[in-house]
């Protein structure tokens, strides 16, 4: 029997409908403490929907969410943040004309009496943070529009780190990035893991997530169809499995043995 409290985040039978479309059809998803989970699947499989439910942006129609053992029917964005869940959106959530430090504190400014900004404090915190996640030598005063795609992603991750998130959900963080920039994002994820944080890395590119993930969860048409430990599979295996799912809707026989969904007691 799985105990919900063993996991940082645990969902039971999540269902989400958009009109007639059922985006999630009873999803049981879990993330351990200090674990990096690769959530992979084709476009429209329900990856982002799941992420948005965990971040409190969408309200599930059915099911439950356990965070650190606490049970919830639904989360709000504020509640999710209080619980330490930060979503780094697929869409750029940056104000391009404004400096890095303002972007990091966007919506959660450090303020003094009467709501006046503590600018010095925020700049200093931003500078420290940029150093920590490897964005050294970039002055926090730099407007975000002058950063490359990878650095922009870095600023969004820095934002999550600043607010001491325990779980950072990265929704397609490597989309539209050059090879060296993808590498940079992977380094940020390594950094999160080193700091004892957990991470859900959403992508449809196995090769981007493979180097950093501990476990892979494959979602297809609103259902989780397979889970593998990294030690059991190679990137080629995973590609093979994804192609098979896309073509036939099934997993090749030989992988069923190592599919954690079939291993007793793991789910």
């Amino acid at each position: 029997m799985v105990r919900e409290s063993e996991y940082l985040v645990f969902t039971k039978n999540l269902v989400k409908r958009f009109g007639d479309v059922v985006a999630l059809k009873g999803v049981n998803f879990r993330v351990g403490y200090n674990e990096v989970v690769g959530l992979v699947g084709d476009n429209g499989a329900g990856k982002s929907t799941l992420a948005k439910i965990l971040a409190g942006i969408y309200v599930p129609d059915e099911g439950e969410i356990y965070v650190k053992g606490q049970r919830f029917r639904r989360l709000t964005p504020q509640k999710a943040r209080e619980l330490g869940i930060e979503l780094v959106h697929q869409e750029r959530t940056l104000a391009e004309d404004h400096p890095i430090w303002r972007n990091i504190f966007m919506g959660r400014e450090i303020t003094g009496p009467l709501g006046f900004l503590r600018i010095k404090e925020m700049k200093a915190a931003a500078e420290k943070l940029l150093n920590e996640i490897g964005l050294k030598a970039i002055p926090p005063d730099t407007p975000v529009k002058f950063l490359s795609g990878g650095y922009k992603q870095g600023v969004q991750i820095a934002r999550a780190v600043q607010f001491e998130a325990d779980l950072v959900i990265l929704d397609e963080p490597t989309i539209q990035l050059s090879i060296s920039e993808v590498h940079r994002v992977l380094e940020y994820v390594h950094g999160l893991k080193k700091r004892g944080k957990s991470c859900v890395f959403i992508t449809h590119n196995i090769y981007h997530v493979y180097p950093v993930a501990d476990r892979f969860v494959i979602i297809d048409r609103g259902k989780i169809v397979a889970e593998f430990r990294k030690v059991d599979v190679t990137p080629e295996d995973l590609t093979h499995i994804l192609v098979s799912i896309a073509r036939t809707g099934t997993i090749p026989e030989k992988y069923e043995k190592i599919n954690l969904l079939n291993v007793a007691g793991s789910n």
Binding site: H89, E91, R108, L117
Partner: peptide, 20 residues
């Protein structure tokens, strides 16, 4: 803080909303 939110609302409204 209000002025900062005025700027973000014009710069990237969707992002501002997502960030609460």
């Amino acid at each position: 803080k209000f002025g900062a939110h005025v700027y973000y609302t014009g710069d990237n409204r969707v992002a501002a909303q997502m960030l609460g």
